[in-house]
Design a protein around this nucleic acid. Structure first.
Length: 772
DNA sequence: TACTAAGCTCTTTTT
DNA sequence: GAGCTTAGTA
């Protein structure tokens, strides 16, 4: 079959050799037709592994070869990394001209436009981009200001509600006029959400800040209210392409529609079976309805899967066949049958980790393939732990994508907050973060007063700081300290005219005493924090010196870049590592051998998705995305019990495993491996590895020990002590933890250190659970 | 004002 | 498991 497929392609290539330019030789017939059809509306339905990126790449190359200037082409991709890779590939075909392409994620491209046009809609050019944390913090302060019950008005919930409204293009003003929304809020006991929404928008506006959704909404607003601007970009973008179209939301769709209205040269590429972002407002109907919007649409279906073995392709088709909401297409492959899909059962999450690590170790040695050929995909970020531990034990290098990235770290956010202040001092969130860090005698009380004054005057906190003399009465003794802070930030700002981004950043790091504070912290964490800030400075230096990037080299630009950076975008040196990531972030990638883990009911499909058919279907599409990442080998695993918040809970295997036809599966259950209990036996009176006692909350259900390190260590003020763990802390002392012992007194545990001797830790509770 | 002890809560996915 | 909050102490 394999050879036949290749020969067929060759035959087709010869047949049509005169009808297409030679640079399109690498495409099959349908792919080529899609690449050649550049005028008018086009929809490409591209199944997993059908060479979607390739078509898009050559289509753009073809457009440029037809004499269109690259800067008249707009291509919206799902990740910045995808854009970068595609750009490089296009460059290989058409040369340096490719660099002028407008390519990137919706957010980054629109941020670029907004930076040029911001003043038209009343924002400063150097507006700040608030990440989710900043946005939530703003909401939190509003809830506080309105004296609302924060147990009822949960920050995350409000954030989602506001975000959903925005993605559906509903403004705060319109929100009040929509009975469904208002009634829903009223009946849930949160009638003031609309008010919070309005205040939130105002606060962000006053702070010169946009959140992720604003980048889209404001672009829409810009085009809607300023016809001349719309006209300008309609002219500019003669050809528009949208990748991963199934994951666009209403707002994104409306913007594209506006931009494409003049030339109608719009091409969307997507796969309804891979629509997995409805929580972000993505609407599968966008792809299902595209035909209605453009009746004269040309549709191309890429159904030949080049990526995976026929076993994997057929099995994945049998999964997705269970969904009702889907476009008509039939994925097939000419590839060889390949191995059956392994189904592995483990007794616990830790055992699951061990089995997967063991399997990778064996495959690697017998097949002689690289670490980077393996991927472990899971539903939630929290699942990575057991796999990390097991891989570490087997000395297999790995890299975890997602979770807390470099730019989420406290020290990095602190440093970045200073830079944000330099560029846009009205950025309240940045100000609150650093006004007393490092400590400069401006305590919580003073900050609260400043916040209140800012609210009363409907201005940013910076305005109050600036006019501190006018508010001297309210601010009392702190005025002098506030003035010092003001002068310091101002001195940083004055450098903007003469110094480059790196020079300013370096100066700020030193003068703010941030570096000094971190340097003086000699704990393991402190040293690493210092290193991280140095790494950030180094990054800014590289950014300043980078001449391949056509953008300007200002701090403002740097901040925008990192605000929209995804973990997957960060090009770590191409080290040979096993990849660990959520299925969501695996989209667009492929690996020789994929492990889809944690396949348990209520975990995958998620418990929260079991309420409606649509949501369950989305989980199934997610499963489809996961299994279609695999080229040669696929392993599915689940555990029959799992630790959750310290509780050992029994698990049922996922219904998705049952949905695959049996003939594609190979079950390899073994009952011989004994479950290794994470808790030591009582007789030894020694706590097991990785477990100690819970100082915080006494709980019968939690056998592990959580030891609070210090409220100061904001990033993690609780931690597990592990025998063999290195520690350096004023309270626990220095050295290696030799053992953690029960003293016989329920309230005390004895921790022995290699150097600092013994310390007695007072505990509220100690319970040893024996499961064996 | 800074720090600690002890308690509570959350738990999907991401730009 | 991890983060956050609150009450109380230094």
């Amino acid at each position: 079959m394999l050879f036949f497929g290749k020969r067929l392609n060759l035959y087709l290539a010869i047949m049509s050799i005169n009808s297409h330019p030679p640079y399109l030789d690498k495409l099959n017939e349908v792919q080529r037709e899609a690449a050649l059809c550049i005028n008018g509306p086009v929809m490409i339905i591209a199944g997993a592994g059908s060479g979607k990126t390739r078509v898009l790449t050559y289509r753009i190359a073809h457009i440029i070869k037809q004499g269109v200037d690259a800067f008249n082409v707009l291509a919206l991709t799902f990740t910045n990394k995808a854009a970068k890779e595609m750009k490089n590939r296009i460059e290989a075909v058409v040369g340096a001209e490719a660099r002028n392409l407008w390519m990137g994620t919706f957010h980054s491209v629109f941020a670029k436009i907004l930076r040029i046009e911001a003043e038209r809609i009343g924002y400063p050019r150097d507006f700040t981009i608030y990440d989710t944390d900043d946005a939530k913090s703003v909401i939190k302060s509003i809830v506080k200001e309105l004296n609302l019950d924060d147990k009822l008005y949960k920050v995350g919930l409000i954030y989602n509600r506001i975000s959903n409204a925005k993605n559906s293009l509903i403004t705060a003003k319109e929100y009040i006029t929509i009975p469904e929304l208002m009634e829903a809020d009223a009946s849930s006991g949160r009638p003031l959400i609309s008010k919070i929404f309005a205040m939130y928008q105002l606060k962000c506006f006053k702070a010169g800040a946009m959140d992720f959704d604003d980048l889209l909404v404001n672009t829409f607003k810009l085009f809607k209210e300023h016809v001349d601007v719309l006209y300008k970009y309609q002219h500019k973008f003669k050809y528009i392409m949208v990748d991963e179209y199934q994951d666009t939301n209403l707002c994104q769709y409306m913007i594209i529609k506006k931009l494409a209205a003049m030339n109608q040269n719009i091409c969307v590429v997507g796969d309804d079976s891979q629509s997995i972002y409805s929580f972000r407002g993505a609407n599968i109907q966008n792809i299902l309805n595209f035909e209605k919007d453009y009746p004269e649409l040309n549709v191309f279906k890429l159904e030949n899967n080049y990526r995976s073995t026929s076993t994997i392709v057929n099995a994945s088709s049998s999964i997705i066949a269970n969904n009702k909401e889907k476009l008509d297409k039939r994925i097939y492959t000419d590839n060889a049958e390949g191995d059956k899909i392994k189904v592995v059962r483990a007794l616990s999450d830790n055992e699951e980790g061990r089995m997967v690590a063991q399997s990778i170790f064996e495959e690697k040695n017998t097949l002689h393939i690289a670490n980077s050929d393996f991927a472990i995909l899971y539903r939630t970020n929290a699942q990575s732990r057991s796999f990390e531990e097991a891989l570490r034990k087997n000395n297999i290098p790995y890299r975890v994508y997602g979770g807390t990235s470099f730019y989420q770290r406290k020290e990095i956010k602190d440093m970045v907050a200073y830079l944000r202040m330099v560029v846009n001092p009205n950025d309240d969130e940045a100000l609150k973060r650093i006004i007393n860090y490092p400590a400069r005698k401006i305590g919580n009380t003073t900050v609260d007063r400043l916040t209140l004054l800012a609210s009363e005057n409907e201005c940013s906190i910076w305005e109050i700081v600036k006019n501190n003399t006018q508010h001297a009465a309210e601010l009392g003794n702190s005025v002098a300290h506030i003035r010092d802070f003001y002068i310091m930030i101002q001195s940083f700002q004055s450098m903007l005219v003469s110094k480059n981004a790196y020079e300013i950043a370096e100066y700020v790091a030193k003068q703010s005493t941030l570096l000094k504070a971190l340097y003086e912290d000699k704990t393991v964490e402190g040293v690493s924090r210092h290193e991280n800030v140095m790494e950030l400075l180094n990054g800014i230096k590289e950014f300043t010196e980078d001449d391949t990037n056509e953008n300007d080299k200002t701090i403002s630009q740097f901040l925008q870049d990192i605000a929209l950076l995804t973990d997957a975008d960060k090009d770590k040196e191409n080290k040979d590592t096993v990849t660990l990531m959520t299925i969501h972030s695996s989209k667009g990638l492929e690996f020789k051998h994929v492990y889809v883990v944690g396949l348990e009911e209520n975990l995958f499909p998620s418990q929260l998705s079991l309420n409606s058919r649509q949501e369950l279907e989305e989980e199934r599409r997610l499963f489809y995305v996961a299994v279609t990442r695999a080229e040669e080998k696929l392993t599915l695993s689940f555990a029959t019990s799992r630790f959750k918040y310290g509780n050992l809970i029994p698990c049922e295997p996922s219904r998705f495993i049952d949905e695959i036809e049996n003939k594609y599966l190979e079950f390899s259950y073994s009952n011989t491996i004994k479950m290794e209990l994470p808790i030591a036996k009582k007789e030894s009176q020694t706590f097991g590895k990785g477990y100690g006692m819970n100082v915080g909350k006494p709980s019968f259900s939690r056998p592990s020990a959580q030891i609070q390190i210090s409220a100061n260590f904001k990033e993690s003020n609780t931690a597990n002590l592990t025998a063999g763990q290195q520690i350096e802390h004023q309270r626990f002392g220095k050295g290696v933890v030799v053992s953690i012992q029960d003293t016989g007194d329920n309230r005390k545990a004895l921790i022995k250190f290699s150097e600092a001797g013994e310390k007695t830790l007072v505990l509220k509770f100690a319970k040893l659970m024996i499961l064996e």
